[in-house]
């Protein structure tokens, strides 16, 4: 799968941009948190597209963001 770039995103309508980012995020999150992947992806899609692109390029940043999201999610569900 080729990397998603800002210029690729810019060619798509805003709604589709989130979709493209969501597909990438979901497939990275799923192996870590299968049961929460959809919700974590939904949370991360609230972040600015440019920041999500940075996360997709930086596995360590993404992982810490995922853990942050899981913490928030668990607190929210508690």
């Amino acid at each position: 799968q080729e990397p998603l770039t800002a210029s690729m995103l810019a060619k798509a309508p805003p709604q589709e941009q989130k979709q493209m980012l969501g597909e990438r995020l979901y497939h990275l999150i799923y192996p870590l948190h299968p049961s929460l992947a959809g919700k974590i992806t939904g949370m991360l899609l609230e972040i600015d597209n440019s920041e999500v692109l940075l996360l997709l390029e930086s596995p360590a940043s993404l992982r810490s963001k995922i853990e942050e999201a899981v913490t928030v999610l668990q607190a929210h569900q508690a």
Partner: peptide
């Protein structure tokens, strides 16, 4: 939207509606 349904859940292959419904 209601706080109980937050966060919106992403499903691969399903068009993302996200926060547009709020």
């Amino acid at each position: 939207g209601s706080s109980i349904s937050w966060p919106p859940e992403f499903h691969p292959g399903v068009p993302w509606k996200g926060l547009q419904n709020i």
